[in-house]
């Protein structure tokens, strides 16, 4: 009497989605927060950042998309940490289920959560003047790169969620690390104007490659010359490379942390 892997995952994903429904404020990270960032940067800082031959708002939107996707690691980490904390994971592990289904369901619901954010941001973008100027194929590739990056972020979420003692600690650690990382990039301003040390970090930041790739694939670069930094000259490949590398490096660490946490 053991349910199919599929039914277990479906039931657990449904449970995670019910959580979102009962706690809609958990969605602010993919709704109110990115919209606020779009509005703040577009209308407060937008005037002082000059994008030759393009609009700052169009240039900005891929940056905020990437930032929001980076923050999706929060969602995984906090959700998982809560379940660990409250003994729910133990309850699941005492049942005759396929053990990976718990983490897989967590990953799937996180992708769904982030997808809501992508839709909300795309719509907000369209309202403030963002447009896709290239073909459907390129546009879809940009969205795929974004989701692939989201997949890599899930592992970071599992690692942090399994390593910290409380959801508050998770929040603190994630805020202190992910927040600056998303700013130390080409997200909101071109790296060219940054001091050399900071500029090099920004150019090699995985988020920058992703953002550059989306800007190019959607045609949001304006008349900016292609940046000289190597990762930004091959943004699509580099972005895929970063997402794969992060997954390959972090996934074993995350699984080890999760196993250590759950078996002790």
């Amino acid at each position: 009497m053991s349910a199919s892997f599929g039914r277990q995952i479906r039931s657990l994903v449904r449970r995670n989605l019910i959580h979102i429904k009962r706690q809609p404020e958990a969605l602010t990270d993919v709704t109110i927060q990115p919209v606020m960032f779009v509005l703040l940067f577009a209308y407060v800082f937008g005037g002082s950042i000059n994008i030759p031959g393009g609009s700052y708002r169009e240039w900005l939107l891929p940056g905020i998309m990437a930032q929001t996707m980076a923050f999706s690691s929060f969602v995984v980490a906090i959700g998982l940490n809560n379940d660990l904390q409250k003994g729910i994971i133990d309850r699941f592990r005492s049942l005759p289920i396929h053990r990976p289904s718990v983490l897989l369901a967590r990953a799937i619901s996180s992708v769904m959560h982030s997808s809501i954010g992508i839709v909300v941001m795309s719509l907000t973008g369209l309202i403030v003047g963002w447009r896709i100027h290239e073909g459907v194929g390129k546009a879809l590739l940009a969205y795929l790169l974004l989701l692939l990056f989201g997949f890599a972020m899930i592992w970071i979420g599992i690692l942090v969620g399994s390593s910290m003692d409380s959801p508050e600690a998770v929040n603190g650690v994630m805020f202190a690390t992910m927040f600056p990382i998303t700013f130390l990039a080409n997200t909101f301003a071109p790296p060219e104007g940054m001091p050399t040390f900071v500029r090099v970090i920004a150019e090699w930041n995985p988020i920058s490659a992703l953002v550059q790739a989306m800007r190019e694939l959607w045609g949001n670069t304006g008349n900016f010359p292609t940046p000289e930094a190597w990762p930004l000259q091959h943004p699509v490949l580099v972005s895929i490379g970063w997402s794969v590398l992060i997954s390959v490096v972090v996934a074993p660490m995350a699984l080890r942390a999760y196993n250590r946490r759950t078996t002790n």
């Binding site: 009497m1 053991s2 349910a3 199919s4 039914r7 277990q8 479906r10 039931s11 657990l12 449970r15 019910i18 959580h19 009962r22 706690q23 409250k86 003994g87 729910i88 133990d90 309850r91 699941f92 049942l95 005759p96 289920i97």
Partner: peptide, 23 residues
């Protein structure tokens, strides 16, 4: 610690477990 899912109803909690068992 009573390991029930606080955000699910009593019925949903039991159904979730039954689903996981494959009943």
């Amino acid at each position: 610690s009573a390991t029930v899912d606080e955000l699910l109803t009593g019925r949903e909690n039991l159904r979730l477990i039954a689903d996981l068992y494959g009943i």
